[in-house]
Amino acid sequence: MTVRITVGLDGTETGERALSFARDLASRIEACELIVAYVIEWSPFTFQTAEENDKRHKRREEEIQIATSRVVSPAVKALTDAGFNAKGVVQHGDVAETLNRITTEHGASQIIVGRVSNDGFTKRIFGSSTQNLVMHADVPVTVVG
């Protein structure tokens, strides 16, 4: 049976460390698929101008395209080149919630993420995405420092 593992990337160095940890883990499992996920932070409850709204669809496509070409595709390519089974997913939403959803939807059994620290004020009030993920995920989460 294939074991699936979600790796959450954020385009930073800690994301890279999460990826190499996942690689290491996958190499020890016989049949393993890595789900390389990138979540574009987005909330449906923000206030927008009419002009922003009418260009939103276009922006969304651009955001997905950039995340795919800059972060996800290179990571997936590097993994497949190295003989791993990998696929990429890019989605908008709340980072913790969406990573968890991607994981359950793909039937993955654990999540690996980097330790991200959004600084100061926001973190104090809302906690970081990683903290939220660890608290609310339906599967075990590994946080790579």
Binding site: F45, F47, Q48, N53, H57, R60, Q91
Partner: peptide, 21 residues
């Protein structure tokens, strides 16, 4: 709202934009 459509203009955003007018 289908989570796979996340990132598009939401109902909330359309409503509040219209309301601000």
């Amino acid at each position: 709202s289908d989570p796979n459509d996340a990132g598009e203009v939401s109902h909330f955003q359309a409503l509040t934009t219209a309301l601000s007018g």
